[in-house]
Design a protein around this nucleic acid. Structure first.
Length: 381
DNA sequence: ATTTATGATTAGAA
DNA sequence: TTCTAATCATAAAT
């Protein structure tokens, strides 16, 4: 704390003249000088400080400085404290909080990483696949954000301590009011918070970009893989009488097809409505899938791991529910073969959900959809 | 370039 | 909440 009572070395000269000559020295020389000077000047400064401290006129000087300060203090005080970026900052804070950046990473990083193979039993929200990328990047952003924030905090603290020490030391030579130090600290903090706000802003920007990219990706439609369509159609035509897969079945189908549960739901929604709208268009497809499920066992059914969901694992293939399968196949065959699918044939259709297709199709354009002899009608295409 | 197929989104009903 | 029905927007086919 005290200036070290070190034997003051004879002050060589405040500044050695540039040795380069009349023309300016190059930067290397300047650098060298600076490097050389620092050591010396440190000691020199210490010595000077000590000398000044011990100067007999010091108290007088101090009081004079006090007087001067008294006069100027008023004008200093009038500085308007900036409270402007407060609203902006809180807005950014809220956004970051809402976006989950400020949140302390609630879940352990186990679920998202294992998105490739087996979906854990939890994860009721099936959007994991689409969101995994998003989540990973968000986590990255969050990590960077927090580390930077911490760095700033630390730097701010260090700098504040430094300045405080400096002021304390200076207070021996000149009057330093405690509130002045406070003000100084406040200034430093405001500066650093400005930097923090910049960080927050850019973080927000990154998150928004990421999010918009995700939305764009969602808007872009990618057709499902062959495998996915296969699995979905398989189930659909195997359960034509009641094509409403349960939640478990949906999960299973999603797993098999490499899509999400919501995608499975979407697909079944679309399929039902479109099938109903004109069945004729789908007869070919229906015959393909029903035939394949009944006869062709080598289609896609290679070594399938049926580890999970043992109960209702796609009864279509191995006739686990022979009754249902047979009936559905019959229905399909019948709609395929008969010139007319029994106008009053709702008895067969109305199974568990009370005749899905109950409402009469609203008169599709050309062939009234009730004539599913599709294969032939395609000739006039 | 136009049409069709298809995944996603939306409003509203049960 | 899920499901239907309509609709949007884009991929694929013509």
């Amino acid at each position: 704390m005290d200036a070290q009572p070190r034997p003051a070395p004879p002050p060589p000269s405040p500044r050695s003249p540039p040795p380069g000559g009349p023309l300016g020295p190059d930067t290397g020389d300047v650098l060298q000088q600076i490097m050389a000077i620092t050591d010396q000047s440190l000691e020199e400064a210490q010595a000077r400080k000590h000398a000044l401290n011990c100067h007999r006129m010091k108290p007088a000087l101090f009081s004079v400085l006090c007087e001067i300060k008294e006069k100027t203090a008023l004008s200093i005080r009038g500085v308007p404290e900036e409270g402007l970026p407060d609203a902006r900052l809180t807005r950014l804070d809220n956004m970051l909080l809402a976006e989950g950046v400020s949140r302390p990473e609630k879940r352990g990083r186990g679920a998202a990483a294992a998105a490739g193979t087996a979906t854990p039993g939890g994860c009721p929200n099936g959007n994991g696949l689409e969101h995994s990328d998003y989540r990973a990047k968000l986590s990255q952003i969050r990590q960077i954000y927090h580390s930077e924030l911490e760095k700033y905090e630390q730097a701010c603290h260090e700098f504040t301590t430094h300045v405080t020490n400096l002021l304390r030391e200076q207070s021996r030579m000149r009057p330093v009011l405690p509130e002045e130090m406070e003000r100084m600290v406040g200034v430093i903090h405001s500066k650093f918070s400005a930097i923090q706000m910049q960080l927050k802003q850019s973080t927000c920007e990154a998150v928004m970009t990421l999010r918009s990219r995700l939305l764009d990706a969602r808007r872009k439609r990618r057709n499902f893989s062959k495998q996915a369509t296969e699995v979905l159609n398989e189930y659909f035509y195997s359960h034509l009488s009641n094509p409403y897969p349960s939640e478990e079945v949906k999960q299973e189908l999603a797993r098999k097809g490499g899509i999400t549960v919501s995608q499975v739901s979407n697909w079944f929604g679309n399929k039902r409505i479109r099938y109903k709208k004109n069945m004729g268009k789908f007869q070919e497809e229906a015959s393909i899938y029903t035939a394949s499920t009944v006869a062709d066992t080598t289609k896609v059914w290679g070594p399938r791991s049926q580890a999970s969901c043992p109960s209702t694992a796609s009864s279509g293939s191995s006739g686990h529910f022979p009754l249902t399968s047979a009936r559905d196949a019959l229905i399909t065959l019948r709609t395929l073969a008969s010139p007319r699918p029994a106008p009053g044939g709702g008895s067969l259709w109305s199974q568990s959900r009370g005749s899905w297709q109950g409402t009469t199709p609203p008169v599709s354009t050309s062939p009234p959809a009730g004539y599913p002899s599709g294969a032939n009608s395609h000739a006039s295409h």
